[in-house]
Design a protein around this nucleic acid. Structure first.
Length: 764
DNA sequence: TGATGCTAACTTTTT
DNA sequence: GTTAGCATCA
């Protein structure tokens, strides 16, 4: 037997050794899915399949990179480089780049990210004299995105009665026209958005049979990861490309389908059996990741969903600890609890920071955890949020590079024509746009000869200078690699200098970001091309891949010892020894937008399932009575998902509804449960009263100077920045973790305050 | 034309 | 609470 087959269980081996024909692998969470996929690829190659004939599609760059690396490791040689492994978007972008001219696009077409697309839409909405409060760019974008993912072009959109009815009902009858203009403007700009990468790929294969035939024969074996997350466009493309050989292997788990908002349809995996003849189906049900406790909870929770492929995950692992349910008073308490629990776990069980992940439903929840971790000096890494590539200075720089490569791109041209300021103002830009429209020319064409276009004044020479500069960069394109051109752009536009001159803290950060960008371009030019196919180190090639990268992909130091903070969506496919699943509250998780539709609610539940199954050893589920949202305090009930966890699997020490003796409480637990001794119903009543009669916030004196924790004594009168004046009733905890119970005035009541965190001033 | 300050919107999830 | 975008002023 081959060495690489030895570590596989029976089911896994069947999936790996099956070579030809359609194969569906239903892979439960933690069942060794990636192992099977990579071993299968290695097995194919071992049996004479040329790496060039294998295509593997994933949803994230990270998954693609990992797969490639693991195949390489199994094979022990560099043949894996010739594999075509990548995300749907990046693989299609690459193919489209090669075939762009057939669709009337430049090879160096620009890829618009979501922000770019929304800004184009905003322009169109304003041009059409529509109210962008009603036709919100984000809404319009989503609607168009959904259309493209369902392979509906603007003409079909306008003809589809159901769609028209929907738009009429939402009082947005002009959606179709906006879509139409948007598609035309993107085309004129030589730009594709994310959805176009799928949609245009579909059009390419449909309209050009010779292109289809080429790729059908090239990709004799196709493997799709996370098949449950594919949408109609992806489905149709795979179906076409795989039609000749039908060696399609899909891997997925219907229970982990969490992208329907992006057009993904579970139906693709549920119906795979009907799509192809003689499908072999393999179910991977042994979980190697989690303890029995964790897995039991996961199974129990997901069983509340109706529509699924029947399977039962099991594990040989130890039972492990119960799932710890935690209730806190506020979102800040929730943050502190987690930071404290991490500290304690590290001490007691010798975990490292990197063993912990804090998973939440929405990015906005990260704040309280960041604050508490920072206070405790626990290093953390935040995923998501504003991406590196979305920062203004990075976008500005990239806009230059994009224009050098594709001058058609009006969006980016407008962005940089007066940056750094060179006296080409709003009026000039509008004038150019009017002329461009009248004469049916691109923005770039008009500014070739500003005088002839009817522009006059000081702006004219500035424009001429700008055009000359861009053109000089373009002459470098052919001979020089991405880094050389980018470096020249940074130097000769004054961009780098301008940021360098700004000595403020933010200015320094911006300068560093641009330097980092330049470094990443350098790295790109110096890394050998992995496909070994085209050693394309041009700027155009760089730009095409950069837009498809996210922060998670950029993160090279995977093993740095830090706590990871991310959304559950971002955590899919990852695993951690200890997981905090936070914010389990109605309206938040499940999200308020999902409460009125069974399918949406089931998707939220699958999301919870994904969150639970990220944990290997320990799992905490936390919720809070009140949290800040929109700047004001709101109260939420505990999530319905909590009730779906059987009592027997729960450790309720930290809920105030203890099912364990008090003695077993750890030192940090009771700090955050002021209500620990109250019955829930009373608590709820108290919340209600508090809601209606919220005490006025205290404003501290301008010269407020806090005292040190060790100065506090029982009986002292103190001033708190938020809660005002109060008297210290008791003091507990060690020297580094003193906790004061304080009776506040003005209706704030009694509170337990951790002196390390709160800023208190001694009055007397 | 540019900078400053205020208001409103923001919170679903991402390639 | 935060931030982006807009309006107003210099």
């Amino acid at each position: 037997m081959q060495e690489y087959l030895k570590g596989l269980n029976e089911k896994q081996r069947i999936a790996v050794e099956h070579m030809d024909g359609p194969l569906m692998i239903v892979a439960g969470a933690g069942s060794g899915k990636t192992k099977v996929l990579t071993t299968r690829i290695a097995h194919l190659m071992h049996n004479g399949v040329d790496a060039f004939n294998i295509l593997a599609l994933t949803f994230t760059n990270k998954a693609a990179a990992e797969m490639k690396e693991r195949v390489e490791r199994i094979l022990g040689n560099t043949e894996a480089r010739n594999l075509y492994i990548g995300t749907f978007h990046s693989v299609f972008a690459r193919i489209l780049r090669a075939e762009a001219n057939k669709l009337g696009y430049p090879n160096n077409f620009t890829i618009y990210d979501t922000d770019d697309a929304k800004s184009v839409l905003k322009g169109i909405i304003n041009d059409m004299n529509l109210d962008d409060k009603h036709y919100k760019p984000a809404y319009v974008y989503n609607r168009i995105s959904a259309a493209k993912n369902s392979l509906i072009d603007p003409v079909m959109y306008k003809q589809d009665t159901q769609i028209q009815q929907e738009d009429a009902r939402s009082n947005r009858p002009l959606m179709g026209d906006i879509y139409d203009s948007y598609a035309k403007r993107c085309f004129k700009n030589g730009a594709m958005d994310f959805d176009d990468l799928l949609f245009k790929m579909y059009i390419l294969l449909t309209n050009f049979p010779e292109v289809l035939a080429k790729y059908q024969h090239r990709f004799k074996y196709i493997l799709i990861d996370e098949y449950q997350d594919t949408n109609l466009a992806q489905y149709a493309i795979i179906k076409m490309m795989g039609a000749v050989h039908e060696n399609i292997c899909v891997v997925g788990d219907d229970a982990q389908s969490i992208y329907s908002f992006r057009g993904a349809t579970v139906q693709n995996i549920l119906q795979f059996n009907d799509d192809y003849d003689d499908v072999m189906t393999v179910k991977l049900e042994q979980n190697y990741r989690s303890t029995q406790s964790i897995l039991n909870v996961a199974n129990q929770v997901i069983s509340n969903n109706k529509n699924q492929i029947p399977k039962q995950l099991w594990t040989d692992n130890t039972e492990g600890d119960k799932i710890v349910l935690v209730r806190t008073m506020t979102d800040n308490d929730e943050g502190r609890f987690v930071a404290d629990a991490i500290t304690e776990m590290k001490l007691r069980n010798h975990y490292a920071n990197k063993d912990f992940a804090i998973l939440y439903r929405t990015n906005a929840q990260s704040r309280s955890f960041e604050e508490s971790l920072r206070r405790m000096n626990i290093p953390y890494k935040l995923y998501g949020g504003v991406s590196f590539y979305q920062r203004k200075e990075v976008k500005d720089f990239l806009a230059y590079l994009r224009i050098v490569v594709n001058t058609q791109d009006e969006e980016n041209l407008k962005r940089i024509i007066n940056y750094p300021a060179r006296g080409i103002g709003k009026t000039s830009i509008e004038k150019i746009m009017v002329i461009a429209n009248e004469q049916d020319k691109t923005f770039w064409e008009v500014i070739q000869d500003p005088a002839a276009a009817g522009l006059k004044g000081a702006g004219t020479s500035a424009i001429e200078e700008f055009v000359t500069k861009i053109k000089s960069f373009q002459t470098q394109l052919e001979k020089q690699n991405a880094y050389d051109v980018a470096f020249a752009v940074g130097k000769h536009t004054g961009l780098v200098q301008e940021l360098y001159n700004d000595k403020s803290v933010e200015g320094l950060a911006r300068y560093e970001n641009v330097q980092e960008l330049l470094n990443s371009i350098k790295e790109f030019t110096e890394t050998p091309d992995e496909e070994g196919e085209l050693l394309d180190k041009s700027l155009g090639s760089y730009l095409q891949q950069i837009t498809l990268l996210t922060d998670a992909d950029k993160d090279s130091d995977e093993n740095q010892d830090s706590v990871k903070l991310m959304t559950i969506h971002a955590a899919k496919g990852l695993e951690f020894p200890c997981v905090f699943n936070v914010g389990l509250e109605e309206n938040l998780f499940p999200s308020a937008m999902s409460l009125y539709d069974r399918a949406d609610l089931e998707e939220e539940r699958r999301l919870f399932y994904v969150a639970i199954t990220r944990a290997k050893e320990r799992l905490w589920v936390t919720y809070t009575n009140s949290r800040y949202r929109f700047g004001s305090l709101i109260q939420n009930d505990p999530s319905r998902f909590i009730e779906e966890i059987p009592e027997a699997y729960l450790d309720k020490t930290f809920t105030g509804m203890s099912n364990r003796p008090q003695a077993q409480q750890s030192s940090f637990g009771n700090t955050f449960n002021e209500s620990a001794n109250r019955v829930p119903s009373l608590k709820k009543l108290a919340d209600k009263i508090q809601q209606t009669a919220k005490p006025a916030a205290h404003t501290p004196a301008p010269n407020f100077a806090a005292n040190e924790p060790h100065e506090m004594e029982v009986g002292m009168e103190v001033e708190h920045q938020k809660f005002g004046f109060g008297k210290i009733l008791t003091l507990e905890g060690g020297a580094n973790n003193r906790i004061a119970t304080i009776q506040f005035q003005q209706g704030h009541g009694q509170k337990k305050i951790m002196l390390n965190y709160a800023r208190l001033r001694i009055v007397k």
